[in-house]
């Protein structure tokens, strides 16, 4: 299948790589994260409607933010428990 627009295709690949990179620290392990991420992308691999692809990308960006926030909160809470006497 020829790519509809190269830039969208690149955006999707970049997003996938970034999510993979984020997944290395996933609390349930990379082995849990990677197949699920792959499945999520593969399920929409045949998508050709540009608007839908854009929507998918923004959904991916949202997931990225969520994971970053998850890491931040996990670390913040752990440190707070360790260093804050009242926590």
């Amino acid at each position: 299948m020829p790519p509809s627009t190269p830039s969208l295709r690149h955006q999707v690949i970049a997003l996938y790589k970034e999510l993979l990179y984020l997944g290395r620290e996933y609390p349930l392990g990379y082995d849990y994260f990677r197949p699920r991420l792959h499945k999520a992308f593969m399920s929409k691999a045949g998508e050709t409607d540009e608007d839908k692809i854009r929507k998918g990308i923004s959904q991916g960006e949202y997931v990225k933010k969520e994971i970053e926030m998850l890491y931040y909160l996990k670390r913040y809470r752990t440190l707070r428990k360790r260093y804050d006497a009242d926590a």
């Binding site: 970034e18 984020l22 970053e68 890491y71 804050d84």
Partner: peptide, 13 residues
């Protein structure tokens, strides 16, 4: 101290 800010994630790019 811990509550100063929320550090950003060093993203791959």
């Amino acid at each position: 101290d811990l509550r100063l800010n929320e550090p950003r994630y060093a993203s791959l790019p």
